[in-house]
């Protein structure tokens, strides 16, 4: 956390689009330095694959630490974290389904807490550490939970899957020996229309066992 703060102090208020692009580049570079091998920085070119939204006059600068990479970004106060992740940062793994906190498809982890990113304003996440589905795999290797999802066919259309994985990863991070009821409770806020719940339960329990 101290790393984020020290970089945050250097943040400059409202940025033009051109300056913003430059700032993101710097942010990524500094993240690489700060994390020394623990977290991998994304290449700057990828970060900038999507141009930031034009025409918004009221951008507020915030600093997000997403999956180990720092992003300094201007956001409108009304933008949700889900929208910023998907549209501004191009991390589309996080899904928006109900857009009102009913279904859990947008679930991410913020500062070790599970949140619905569609119900969370991005400005409220300033200086937060965010973990999304894109950051769950450990380097190139799938997280045991992700592998268990594949092995147990715990996904059909896959649209609820990122949210399910985040909710259950959070469970396993905090409760290495969950019972079936713990698993059900942990994903009770994640709707799956294909009805793949039984396999999700199996996957979570199998992953827990393998991670011990």
């Amino acid at each position: 956390m101290s790393e984020i703060k020290s970089s945050q102090e250097a943040l400059i208020p409202p940025v033009s689009r051109r300056e913003f692009i430059a700032t993101v580049g710097v942010g990524v570079a500094s993240a690489t330095v700060l994390t020394t091998g623990v977290m991998e920085a994304e290449p700057a070119a990828e970060t900038l694959a999507h141009e930031p939204t034009e025409g918004s006059a009221h951008h507020v600068p915030i600093s997000l630490w997403v999956n180990g990479t720092q992003y300094e970004i201007g956001v409108e106060p009304r933008w949700t974290l889900a929208t910023v992740l998907r549209r501004e940062l191009g991390m589309t793994g996080t899904k928006i389904v109900c857009d009102r906190g009913e279904c859990g498809a947008c679930t991410v982890i913020r500062n070790d807490q599970l949140i619905y990113s569609c119900m969370t304003l991005a400005v409220d996440c300033d200086r937060s550490r965010i973990e999304t589905i894109e950051g769950v795999a450990l380097k190139e290797k799938l997280h045991p939970l992700q592998q268990a999802f594949i092995d147990n066919d715990a996904l059909q259309c896959g649209y609820c899957t990122p949210g399910m994985v985040m909710a259950l990863k959070h469970l396993l991070d905090h409760q290495p020996r969950p019972a079936l009821d713990d698993v059900k409770e942990a994903c009770a806020g994640n709707l799956c229309r294909c009805g793949t719940y039984p396999n999700v339960f199996k996957a979570a329990l199998e992953a827990a066992q393998k991670m011990r």
Partner: peptide, 23 residues
């Protein structure tokens, strides 16, 4: 197991709602 399972569990799978094009 599904041949595209890895894309679906990592967020790499691009759905129509995920398409982002310049401008």
């Amino acid at each position: 197991p599904r041949v595209d399972g890895d894309k679906r569990v990592t967020g790499a799978a691009k759905y129509t709602s995920d398409i982002l094009l310049p401008h």
